[in-house]
């Protein structure tokens, strides 16, 4: 997958301003950046739900924004996407959620769908939860079900949107190792969008760091830790002040307080 000169603005606000990325097949690529840099937007551009203002997103040699809806839907069948909070269909059980893409896109007999669904659920360790409804699941379990659903059609590529946010340490560990194991076992091209530094660095093959619409650093996790950019260091270490100031831009503190009286 290649991204060239990508530009996207929402109203006045420019979210991406000329981004180039190469995402290799069969690897786990992490895209990191602070909150509000439009990481989710990037995934939507890749999935063709949004159209870029300039530049191109090519997936498997096809320019996503140029595809007509039929071809786009065909391409999406080869992609899986894991949404931030799972986005399970709340009126269907766990089993039916995983079966959903199979029922929509294949005409497999019921027995075979059952076997496939149980295999996928087994892979995420939730075979026993098949009859629960999404409302009965914890956040981490919901994400694992969504992961099983994302790989139900054996896609070539899976997009992960903030899979680690708001997880307790145990489910965090489960998700991290699942991502790595599935990528290796299924030969997936994985794109991971996250701002959880340690988890992402521990499993990614290659990392992009974006901020303010630009790629500020790229490289393997090891080379990233050696980065000389103070910005990257602040991001990786999680320091509260640095190149990214603690304060939102504001007039001088003293002047502001005094101005209150007048």
């Amino acid at each position: 997958m290649r991204i060239r000169g990508l530009r996207y603005a929402r109203g006045e606000q420019v979210i991406f301003d000329g981004i180039d990325m190469d995402i290799p097949r069969g690897r786990l690529t992490a895209i990191m950046g602070p909150s509000g840099t439009g990481k989710t937007t990037l995934l939507r551009l890749i999935g063709g739900q949004l159209r870029p203002d300039a530049g191109s997103v090519e997936v498997a040699g096809q320019n996503v924004a140029r595809l007509r809806s039929k071809a786009l839907y065909r391409l999406r069948q080869r992609m899986g996407m894991l949404f931030q909070n799972g986005a399970l269909l709340t009126d269907l059980s766990v089993f039916e959620n995983v079966a959903f893409p199979l029922r929509e896109h294949t005409r497999l007999p019921e027995r075979m769908i059952r076997d496939l669904v149980l295999m996928k659920l087994h892979a995420v360790g939730l075979r026993g939860a098949r009859d629960l409804m999404p409302a009965q699941l914890s956040g981490g379990m919901a994400r694992r079900v969504a992961l099983a659903r994302a790989i139900a059609l054996d896609p070539e590529m899976v997009l992960f949107d903030e899979p680690f946010t708001g997880q307790d340490p145990i489910s965090l560990g489960v998700l991290v190792s699942l991502l790595r194991r599935l990528t290796d076992a299924l030969g997936l091209t994985s794109v991971l969008v996250s701002h959880d530094v340690q988890e992402s660095l521990s499993i990614a093959d290659y990392v992009y760091v974006i901020s303010e619409g630009q790629v500020v650093e790229r490289g393997t996790p090891a080379s990233l830790r050696q980065s000389t950019s103070p910005w990257v260091q602040q991001f990786l270490q999680g320091q509260s002040d640095g190149p990214v100031p603690f304060h939102y831009p504001a007039p001088d503190y003293r002047a502001d307080l005094l101005a209150e009286g007048s």
Binding site: R76, Q77, G80, A87, H105
Partner: peptide
């Protein structure tokens, strides 16, 4: 959105 990404209209 998730449905769209699963290529279901």
């Amino acid at each position: 959105s998730a449905m769209e990404m699963m290529a279901v209209n």
